[in-house]
């Protein structure tokens, strides 16, 4: 009998159908030049949000 307190005996969420990243995606997530571009893009998005939504009354 399996131990009822073991991780395998828990109501674990089934994530087996979730999409896995491809090798290319995994590589791009660590590719320095590509990530530099994403870094700048993300910072610009934060700045836009700060300007657009931070006042809390902007529509």
């Amino acid at each position: 009998m399996t131990d009822p307190t073991a991780p395998t005996a828990q109501p674990l969420l089934d994530v087996s159908t979730a999409p896995l990243p491809t090798q290319r995606t995994l590589k791009m997530r660590r590719n320095i030049p590509f990530q530099l571009v994403r870094f700048v893009a993300f910072d610009l998005r934060i700045m836009r949000m700060v300007l657009k939504g931070h006042k809390g009354d902007a529509h």
Binding site: Q10, P11, L13, A18, L20, P21
Partner: peptide, 17 residues
């Protein structure tokens, strides 16, 4: 949800929700 599930699967982290 989909995006997070993908990360859990990729990293082999089990989840109980």
């Amino acid at each position: 949800e989909l995006w997070t599930k993908s990360l859990f699967r990729e990293r082999g982290v089990l989840a109980i929700v």
